[in-house]
Simulated assay, not measured.
Amino acid sequence: MRQWQGKGVLFDLDGTLVDTAGDLHAVLNQLLVQYQRPAVSLEQIIPIGSDGIYPLLDLAFEAPLSAENKQRLRAEFIAIYQQNPPRHSRLFSGIEEVLAAFNEHHIPWGIVTNKPTKLTLPLFAKYQVLKTAKTLVCGDTLGFKKPHPAPMHHARAALNIDQGNNILYVGDAKRDIDAGIRADMHTAIAAWGYIHATVNIQDWGAGHILRAPTELLQLTI
């Protein structure tokens, strides 16, 4: 694998660092019980696990929802999520090893996610290694979310790394790669994440496609 000569690494969260599909599945089905609707399977959740709450609601409620109903259901989903600490989420295999190696080699790293802060912090409470991130940019940190490049620029400034193609951004969704490219960052696809089997990730234009987290060590150290 060709080594990337850079100064820092940024990650997406859901589907890249942490497998959160199990908790999203549990929360969504708890919400469906309240509305006497049939449960959805974990297999249905996984391909859209990185896409936020609204796609989960579209999947679960099937019929077109008004903007008002979507906002109400989103608020109810978040309330259930906050009442239930993450029990089913787990770090993807190899992630803890990679982050520990970055810390050991003084490679600054951080997280840029579209997940709201109040849903992100419980994961930090569960996994101590996430607390060693040099920056955390959530979906509500700024007025913009990925694929807009503003969160990426904000994270770059927090890492105190000059402008230029010297940061690697790793994510499992096209919007991650788009945001990284728009921010003039090097990009890598986390192919272990929530990517539907029918999606051709070759078309995303990323610099690298990584099949396992530990491939990052070959690329960066």
Rank of each mutant, 00 (worst) to 15 (best):
E96A: 15
G180L: 12
A179P: 09
E104N: 08
G49Q: 08
Q44R: 05
G207P: 03
G15D: 09
V33C: 05
L168A: 02
L216T: 01
K115V: 08
G94V: 04
I78T: 01
S93I: 14
A21E: 08
P213W: 14
T198D: 15
K134E: 03
L10Y: 12
Q34S: 13
N69S: 07
L168G: 02
Y194E: 03
D162C: 07
Q34G: 02
L99T: 03
F144T: 04
A150K: 12
V40N: 07
S89H: 00
A190V: 06
Q82C: 11
P38W: 07
L24P: 05
L32H: 00
A212V: 07
H106P: 02
H25Y: 15
L13W: 13
Y169L: 02
H88G: 01
W109C: 10
L31N: 04
D51E: 13
A173Q: 14
P85N: 07
P151D: 11
E215K: 06
V18Q: 04
G207M: 01
E43P: 00
L142V: 12
R72L: 15
F92P: 05
D162Q: 04
G207I: 05
F11H: 08
Q202Y: 13
K126F: 08
P108A: 04
I53R: 00
D51V: 12
I177R: 04
G49E: 10
A206Q: 04
G6K: 13
D203K: 15
I177L: 10
S93N: 15
M152Y: 02
G52I: 09
R175A: 04
L73D: 00
E96S: 14
T120K: 06
V170K: 04
K145T: 03
I45A: 01
A155T: 02
V137W: 09
L91W: 09
L13R: 09
V199F: 10
D203F: 08
D14K: 06
T198C: 12
Q3N: 06
M185F: 10
L142A: 15
S41C: 01
K174W: 14
R2M: 13
K146M: 07
F124P: 03
L73E: 00
D176H: 12
Q30K: 14
A101I: 07
A155F: 12
D172M: 05
Q30M: 10
N160Q: 14
V199W: 10
